[in-house]
Amino acid sequence: MKKGYWRILYSHNKWLLGVVLAFVLGQAFFIYKGVETTPFFNYGMYSEVANSKTYYTNLELHKDGKLVPLEELSYFSSHFLAYQICYHQKMLDRDSIDGTIATIEQRFGKESSLTQYLTPLLTTSPEKLNQFDNWIQSYTEIEDLQVTTKKYKYLPATKFVPYETN
């Protein structure tokens, strides 16, 4: 970055200089912490080493035992649908308890009034899991869809095939 940029900011708009400096410091802090807070974003996607796996897990939708491809389900985005299915599974894996609850309690204390106030606003309640079935039905316009977790292995130099433990 040219030295001139800071000089010009200093000469013409000290307020903007302050905003930029505060932003740089904030960004550095959140990079150090490894988390994001709007507007301090980290662009570290796909930067971690991705080692080959024995098997790969895929969340799928099935109807009458047959795979229903996400791309064909909705006029709308299949990515959005995939996010919802993943989150639903994440909730199930945590016994229907939203992981954010632990973060709120850690930050503000378990019994504090702020925790009581924030918890319903920031988290997904277990009852919402029941709502998911209705939502996915209305979103895809298909009844009796089932979310299934399936494992696959990648045959070297060929393709994915179902993973069998035996």
């Binding site: 639903h88 954010t100 919402k128 209305s138």
Partner: peptide, 27 residues
């Protein structure tokens, strides 16, 4: 894509992650 606010009314979940600004806005 069905992503405007009035189209997202029935979405079942919210996830604020660790984003403090999201916490404030929800709060």
């Amino acid at each position: 894509q069905g992503f405007l606010l009035h189209q997202l009314q029935d979405a079942p979940f919210v996830d604020v992650e660790a984003d403090n600004f999201f916490w404030l806005w929800h709060g």
